[in-house]
Nucleic acid binder design. Structure first.
Length: 562
DNA sequence: AACGATAGCGCG
DNA sequence: AAAGCGCGCTATCGTT
């Protein structure tokens, strides 16, 4: 993965806004340095597009560079890698990294505030962007990896995390191609035509009216849970909450219009016309992705609810004229990850070339696909009761290796220990409050209340660590998939000047799903690249282990699932 | 008036 | 009854 002869370069910001550029050796020592004007930065990177650029924070640097028309191949994101290495249980001595607390500060402001990096007065809680601090921390990280229990895995993880950071900025830059007209039509179909500002859409008003009729109260408030609850009780619907999953269980003429009202209001407030005007100004949705934003290594997002686009809006995701979308998602990613990382050949056999849940049924473990899914999700999430928990023991007998991996992770977590993903991302240590509670419960005169609370908190943490190993390793696989596909797409013929959108490019990513926006005549090739990248990611993480990462790939003009 | 916490629901 | 993980966002409610 790392080539000792590759020229590595670092950039840092000077207090006057100019940029220091340095050539560094494999250990992070500066061999040469010079200073260039800020305006020269993009050109400087363009001169060495294949070099690995070491910088403080991809979000802070890359947006300007891309805006200036330059794309780079590789980077080392010091902030993101610091967080990984500081906590990784593979790192033998993290003292130096832990004392470099300045790298724990928040990332720069989101990409649209592109002046944030070059503001004269950096925010007091921001990470440093100067060359000396950047290179010094980089050297600490190189040393931490070298002295670790598994340098190869940590190199892979830090490279994948950094590549993901590049993808995240590029995704923001490209945006999700979006049809405002289709979006408007979907809203109108469910809510009624767009109302004047301050007015409720007609269909919402009708539903509210229907609910109030059934509640026999023309003034009933539907948006306040306590008041709605009282209204429901008055007409004999004895629910404890106003949640839809509880309402669904009751038979009463108010239920159906009420659920429809809640659905409509949800759509209106979360993804209605106001959202469309704010987030889709010009037929592109540009969410802010936050790589490493979740403890497990998954991405988070900030603003716009990028990771929560309701499925009913997916028809609004629409390729440009003459372009197509390649929409691909992995079938049962986390169960496959579990099979591969535990080396469970029986589970891998159930997964090979088919729907994994169907494979479990075919092997006679459980009678139906639904039960197989419930059982496996229950095993990965730590269910102990209900339909899901009931089937877990059956699964434990059929797939002992896979189940032992998650059961061990849960046990370690309950005992206050740390677990790690395949590549070494490590779960956070329990809080002081958690440890205090466990210590209190261990005292001989501990009350029943304290003991039972401590047990409950221990189990909670066990469910977290149980899931952490699988969710986190799945996130690593997905990063490898993204990074590999990104590299393949650069080889596609350019049809425009833009470094990202001037050719086939990634347009969306969500945990186990990718959307590529591609000129129509290259769509088949792009679909093939998506599959090849998935195969490559599997080999990178799991070598020759006999398991495939089955994709559902579609080429279409819209992302609508048909 | 401005904050944090909570309920509820969207996604994987 | 969400029984079982991880998120972000909005509206409402309670506190200051």
């Amino acid at each position: 993965m790392t080539d000792a002869r590759a020229p590595w370069r670092a950039v840092g910001r000077r207090s006057d806004g100019a940029v220091d550029v340095a050539v560094v050796d494999a250990g992070g020592a500066v061999l040469e340095r010079r200073t260039i004007a800020r305006e020269r930065l993009a050109a400087e990177l363009a001169d060495d597009p294949d070099t690995r650029w070491i910088w403080s924070d991809t979000t802070a640097w890359y947006h300007d560079v891309l805006a200036a028309g330059v794309r780079i191949a590789r980077c080392h994101d010091v902030r993101l890698c610091h967080a990984i290495l500081r906590d990784s249980s593979l790192v033998a001595d993290a003292t130096g990294l832990r004392s470099a607390t300045v790298w724990d500060a928040a990332s720069a402001a989101p990409a649209d505030d592109s002046d944030a990096l070059f503001a004269l007065e950096p925010a007091p809680d921001a990470i440093p962007h100067d060359l000396d601090a950047t290179v010094a921390e980089y050297a600490r990280q190189v040393e931490a990896i070298r002295g670790s229990a598994d340098p190869g895995r940590l190199r892979l993880l830090t490279a994948a995390e950094s590549a993901g950071a590049l993808v995240a900025v590029e995704l923001h830059h490209a945006g999700v191609p979006w049809s405002r007209d289709t979006h408007d039509a979907i809203l109108a179909g469910i809510l009624g035509p767009r109302p004047r500002p301050g007015e409720l859409p007609s269909r919402v008003g009708e539903l509210a009216e229907a609910v109030r009729v059934e509640l026999a109260d023309p003034a009933a408030s539907l948006d306040s849970q306590p008041r709605l609850l009282r209204s429901l009780h008055r007409v004999g619907v004895l629910v404890e909450s106003t949640s839809k999953w509880e309402l669904r269980r009751h038979e009463h003429p108010v239920i159906e219009p009420l659920l429809a009202y809640k659905r409509a209001m949800r759509l209106l407030s979360a993804n209605g016309w106001a959202w469309m005007d704010e987030w889709i100004p010009a037929d592109r949705f540009r969410p802010v992705y936050v790589p490493g934003g979740v403890v497990t290594g998954r991405w988070a997002s900030s603003g716009g609810g990028a990771l929560q686009l309701p499925r009913m809006l997916r028809p609004a995701v629409r390729a440009d004229d003459g372009w197509r979308l390649v929409v691909a998602d992995v079938a049962q990613l986390e169960p496959r990850i579990l099979a591969a990382m535990s080396g469970d050949l029986a589970l891998a056999e159930a997964a090979r070339g088919r729907d994994l849940y169907e494979g479990i049924v075919a092997r006679g473990t459980v009678p139906s696909r639904q039960e197989a899914k419930m059982a496996l999700l229950g095993a990965m999430y730590g269910a102990t009761t209900g339909d899901s928990g009931r089937l877990v023991p059956t699964l434990r007998r059929a797939y002992p290796r896979a189940m032992a991996l998650v059961d061990d992770a849960a046990r370690v977590g309950e005992e206050g220990g740390s677990v790690r993903t395949l590549l070494g991302r490590t779960s956070p240590a329990p809080s002081a409050a958690w440890r205090d509670l466990q210590a209190d419960a261990a005292e001989s005169e501990a009350s029943d209340a304290v003991s039972s609370l401590a047990r409950s908190r221990a189990r909670e943490r066990g469910r977290f660590t149980r899931n952490f190993v699988v969710q986190g390793t799945a996130a690593e696989w997905a990063l490898a998939w993204l990074a590999d596909l990104r590299r393949r797409l650069v080889g596609f013929p350019a049809v425009g000047d833009h470094p990202v959108t001037g050719r086939a490019h990634l347009a969306f990513f969500l945990h186990d799903e990718i959307i590529v926006h591609v000129p129509a005549d290259q769509a088949e090739a792009a679909a093939e690249a998506v599959g090849d990248a998935a195969d490559a990611a599997g080999r990178l993480l799991f070598g020759s282990f006999p398991l495939d990462f089955l994709l559902d790939v579609r080429i279409a003009e819209s992302a609508d699932k048909s």
